[in-house]
């Protein structure tokens, strides 16, 4: 039993006003799936929790003119059940379906997942791979930050203490995929995750690519070296071999309670290959049994 105050914000305006007033003491909660754990573990003490779960304006998935907008308060379940995202952004849809377990997904929100800035946040690599933008507000102003610039480190983002995420926006890309390795298949913090999105011209050359990984650095990262290895090329065996080689330059994993750095280095290329091939619509050369 730990102590905290709890104030429920009825709308965005009220939430921003509360943030402005409480400043350092404020602790935003929507699904509270991280907050409750942190409170139990004694990491969060005597804070004012500002509840934004029921703010309608923060919730929902919209698609217009090729752009997808997801409200920050949209639950992972809504994403995991969205037939629109299944078609237009499978990378995020797949990640949502591997996120924790159904009860956590019913509560956890996408805004909360990225704001918490865990290096293992399951929605971060997909959003990086989709080159998403984060729409942020504070009392009296609004700004947009590229996903790539959003994370600063473990549990650190560009968000100011009085700021709130309104939404996340990105362009649809059906050629995208996600893969997660955890210590088990449900309710597991990832050991390595990878996400990829590609665009190809009619000859099959890769004209645009974004690859991102989770749990391999202090923050979710783009794999720029890996991207360079495949850009402008066809997804053939040589390209894939180059891709796997390049991945090691993009990551700086550490040993933690879940896995060693060495293991993460070993499997990251395998996982990147899987998502890249899946995004390209080809079957990776594995899974054969004799």
């Amino acid at each position: 039993m730990k102590n905290f105050e709890f104030i429920k914000a009825p709308d965005v305006k009220a939430a921003l006003a509360l943030l402005d007033k409480e400043k350092d003491n404020a602790y935003l909660v929507a699904g509270s799936t991280n907050a409750m754990v942190d409170i139990r573990a004694g990491k969060v003490n005597d804070r004012t929790l500002i509840g934004i779960r029921d703010i309608e304006a923060l919730s929902g998935i919209k698609f217009s003119r090729g752009k997808i907008t997801i409200g920050a308060g949209t639950t992972i379940s809504e994403i995991a059940e969205s037939s629109l995202l299944a078609k237009k952004a499978p990378v995020l849809f797949q990640a949502a379906n591997q996120f924790a377990d159904p009860t956590t997904r019913n509560s956890a929100t996408i805004g909360g997942n990225i704001a918490n800035a865990s290096p293992a946040a399951d929605t971060a690599p997909p959003l990086l791979a989709l080159k998403a933008e984060v729409v942020i507000a504070k009392k009296g102003s609004k700004r947009r930050v590229a996903m790539e610039d959003f994370f600063l480190g473990v549990n650190k983002t560009v968000l100011e203490k009085d700021e709130l995420i309104l939404a996340i926006e990105f362009s649809a890309n059906p050629h995208s995929a996600f893969y997660k390795v955890g210590l088990r298949n449900a309710m597991a913090i990832s050991v390595v995750t990878a996400a990829a999105s590609v665009r190809k011209d009619k000859d099959g050359n890769i004209t645009d690519v974004a690859i991102a990984l989770g749990s391999v650095a202090p923050k979710p990262v783009r794999a720029f070296n890996a991207e360079k290895a495949v850009l402008g090329k066809k997804a053939d065996e040589k390209t894939i071999a180059d891709l796997m080689k390049a991945v090691s330059k993009d990551i700086s994993p550490i040993d933690d309670v879940r896995a060693s750095a060495e293991y993460r280095k070993d499997i990251a290329p395998v996982i990147v290959k899987r998502v890249f091939c899946k995004a390209c619509g080809i079957c990776p050369n594995e899974g054969r049994t004799k």
């Binding site: 377990d101 088990r184 298949n185 309710m187 913090i189």
Partner: peptide, 11 residues
């Protein structure tokens, strides 16, 4: 903490 003590589930 259970979060870092993984036991297999039904899946």
């Amino acid at each position: 903490l259970l979060v870092d003590y993984k036991m297999p589930t039904a899946v």
